[in-house]
Write a protein that binds this DNA or RNA. Sequence first.
DNA 1: TCGTGTGAATGGATTCACAGCG
DNA 2: CGCTGTGAATCCATTCACACGA
Lengths: 258, 258
Amino acid sequence: MATGRTHRPATRSRGIPEATVARLPLYLRALTALSERSVPTVSSEELAAAAGVNSAKLRKDFSYLGSYGTRGVGYDVEYLVYQISRELGLTQDWPVVIVGIGNLGAALANYGGFASRGFRVAALIDADPAMAGKPVAGIPVQHADELERIIQDNGVSIGVIATPAGAAQAVCDRLVGAGVTSILNFAPTVLTVPDGVDVRKVDLSIELQILAFHEQRKAGEEAHADGAGPAAARRTGTGSDASADQGPDGDVPAVMPA
Amino acid sequence: MATGRTHRPATRSRGIPEATVARLPLYLRALTALSERSVPTVSSEELAAAAGVNSAKLRKDFSYLGSYGTRGVGYDVEYLVYQISRELGLTQDWPVVIVGIGNLGAALANYGGFASRGFRVAALIDADPAMAGKPVAGIPVQHADELERIIQDNGVSIGVIATPAGAAQAVCDRLVGAGVTSILNFAPTVLTVPDGVDVRKVDLSIELQILAFHEQRKAGEEAHADGAGPAAARRTGTGSDASADQGPDGDVPAVMPA
DNA sequence: TCGTGTGAATGGATTCACAGCG
DNA sequence: CGCTGTGAATCCATTCACACGA
C-alpha cells in the first residue's frame, strides 16, 4: 500500500472519514434549527449539545472540512449550513425513486424530510397493477415495467427499495442496470451489487434486536450485582451513533478488493 | 448539557463488542434461512457470504460468544441459531408499544419481522382521538392518555416512537416515566434521556444524505460542465475509496451565500 | 480571555496469519 | 488435510490537552 507522503496537510483534503460523514447530517439539522431562530453564531459546545455529540468530536469533524470557525467566538451558522450542505452534495437536487409502495413505501413518499433537503421523489413504482395510477402523497404510482424508462428519463441515481425481501434483489438488479448507483434498502435482505454501487440498509428488526440485547443485559445486572466492580453504575446509553450500518465498506458492495 | 450519556466500556466477562452485537442479527437471519432449508452445518466462509461480511470478522465475532464451531467442519446451524437468539435475548418475548400511528407507525405495525423474532406489538398508541379504536394490523389503536397504563399493564420496556419530530421528546419522556428503558426513535430529532435508557435512531433523511455525499463524489471527477442532462450512469469506478489521496480537485471554496 | 483547531494519546474494530484440533 | 479460534498487527475513531489566533 502506498504509505508515506504526509507532506501535504492540504487544508481541504478530500479524505473525510466515514464516521464524520455520517454525523454531518446531524450537525446540519441542528444548524438549520438555529438558523430558523436567527441565531448568528454558535460555539462547538452548544452545537454539539444540540446534535447529541461531544464538542471535541464536533471540532475534529469540522476540521476535516476546513477552518470555518472563529477562535474565541464560534461558528457562523449560515456559513456552516452552506458549507455542510455543499459537502454533502445537497446544493443540488437529487431525484429519487421509491420502489415498493406498501405501507412503508407510502410512509417514505409522505416523509417531509426528503423534499426539504435536496431530495425530490421523482417517481413511485410498484409491481402491483392495481396500484398503477393511484396517487400516493400526490404522486401517481407507476408500474414496475416502467422502471428503466423512469430512471433514465429523470436521471435518477438514487433508489429506495421498500419491497418485500423476496423481490429486493431483482429490483436492485434492475435499478443498477438502469443506472442507479446508490441504494437505500429497507428490505430485510443482503443485497449484492457491482463495484461502484453504494448500498445502505435500514432494518427495523435488527434495530429492535440490538435494543433487546441491551435490555436483557440491564435485567441481568439488577438481578445479580456483579462482583468486585468499580462503581455501581448502571448501564449507560449507547448513544445513537449511527453505527449499525452497512455502509460503503465491509463487503457489501461487491466482492472485489480494489 | 443535553444528552447525559456516558459510554461505559462494557469490558465485563460478558463483554461483547458493540460492533459484534450489531452483526448478530445479521448472522441470525442468514442462519434462519439455512435452517429453513434444512442445511445442517455451515462454514464461516459460507455464512459470511450469506450475511455480507468477511469470514475473519465472523469468526472473531463468534469467538466472543464461545467456541461453538467444529474445526475442519464448520458450525451447526440449529445450535448457532439457538445460541445467538439467546445471546440477543430473543428467547423471551418482548412486548413493544408503537407510538404515533401515521404512515410509518402503520408500516411498523404491519411489519412481519417483529413478531417473527421475539417481539410482540402490545399496543398502538396515537394522540389523535379519531384514531382510537380503529384497528391497524389487527390491533386497535389506543389513545395517548392510556400510555402509562398500557406500559405498566403489559410490562413494556421497549418503545418505538413514530410521531412527528415535535412530539417525540414529550412522548419519550412519558415512555421513560412509565418505565420504558429502550427506545427506537424514527422521529428526526435528538432525544434526551436519563442515564440507563438506550436510544437507537433510524433516520431516513440522514441515510439519504450519506448516500448523496458518496454519489456526489462519484460524479466528482467529471470536470464540471454540469450537464443536468440525463444522468446516464456515470461513475469513476473508483470503487472503494480506500485511502486514495485526493487529488488537487478544483472546486474552490470561495463562494459564500451571505 | 475564550474557543477553535490539531498533534498526540488512547481505545476499539478489522484484518492477518497461523497454531491447533477434529 | 480443512476450518475454527485467536494472538498480533493494522487501521480507524474518539478523546485529550494545549498552542494559537481573534
